[in-house]
Design a protein around this nucleic acid. Sequence first.
DNA 1: TCAATATCATATCAATCATTACAAATTGCA
DNA 2: TGCAATTTGTAATGATTGATATGATATTGA
Lengths: 207, 207
Amino acid sequence: MIDAKKVGRPKKFKREDALAAALNVFWAKGYNGASMKDLTAAMKINGPSLYAEFGDKQTLYKLTIDEYAQNDACAPLVAFEGEDDIDKAVQAFMAAAIDYATLQNSGVKGCFLSSCVATTAGEVEGVEAKLQNAIIETDKRLANRFDLEITKGVLPANFPSLQRARLMFDLRQGHVFRARSGCDADEMKQDLEYRSKIVLQADATSA
Amino acid sequence: MIDAKKVGRPKKFKREDALAAALNVFWAKGYNGASMKDLTAAMKINGPSLYAEFGDKQTLYKLTIDEYAQNDACAPLVAFEGEDDIDKAVQAFMAAAIDYATLQNSGVKGCFLSSCVATTAGEVEGVEAKLQNAIIETDKRLANRFDLEITKGVLPANFPSLQRARLMFDLRQGHVFRARSGCDADEMKQDLEYRSKIVLQADATSA
DNA sequence: TCAATATCATATCAATCATTACAAATTGCA
DNA sequence: TGCAATTTGTAATGATTGATATGATATTGA
């Protein structure tokens, strides 16, 4: 079933590679700033091939949003979930987010969703829902790890998982906005230890 | 000197009103998504008049960025500085930022800088510097208030003003991104009391 | 009343936009 | 070897883009 030989002239591109290239173009120039000429050039694909494979520009755009949400945006989450110690895990999440926002091979900076896609939230149909979904899912996934730590006894039973998940996510938005604006990664990482502490401290709601 | 009568046919528009209208168009559609047709219609101005008054589209865009940075973006800062009690002041800042990101008369949501202008950071010359400047100035202005509270003895002498200023600013980015994505204002305000607490607590760096 | 001046409104410019016909090219299968 | 199937490459589509050239219109000062 995989890569079954088909009749007809073979494609010159891999769908996933073309999609990744398109993502980079949209990330760098935004939806409206990216022309079909920009896209076909970066994707190494012809106009007709692009339309045959991805529909039209708007459909391609939404596909790159899904691609980013399912892959790229997960990198910090994977770092978060892969670290055993919860304090190191929080720091790893933030460090990964900062690195990802400043060290892209393509040279683009920031977060595709918050620094680019957000612009089209009111204009391109369905984008607002995609953003909303990405936010909710990330909040949940972060909170799940905190819940796990509660069951393990590392975090207290009354630890407000979702509240702290939202906190982590919002701090991330600050980082990626700063990154898009040219802020230095190391400068942002200076506060990491402190920020991890406030995310995890148990008694902030009282006092 | 003010409003001096000049020879010639009088202008039909006020510069500041036209600029505010242009800001709303860019805010809603982004720089590339906003056409000159959109702009002239919203500004109630003719093409040639627009070019005579504001130069070209890019110059107008940069003017709206300055306009926003000097006026709109200051609203939460004014709320922050106008409240005597520091805890209430921090909450007022965040509440104002949330309100401003969700209750625009024009219907646009989020923050113009982080939800729209950021997209053009790498493409439109000078925008990255404007963003960088806005960030640094806001950080400073927030920190100044904390420094004042230190001299008043309300906050301890070793209170890390700039660190907490950055924290406040980054939390704000989370709020405005959520707002742009359609998140409810009241939902975001639920965490305000807690978030103010972590911004102001003195002993988070130790422990 | 009439120049002088400045803005308004309309029409238009070349360039670029997203999208698509059309024909050549490349494959599998009969 | 030739046909059917599929993609590629080129070129062209009409629409829209940002920006102007032109002339009518409105106001001031003499």
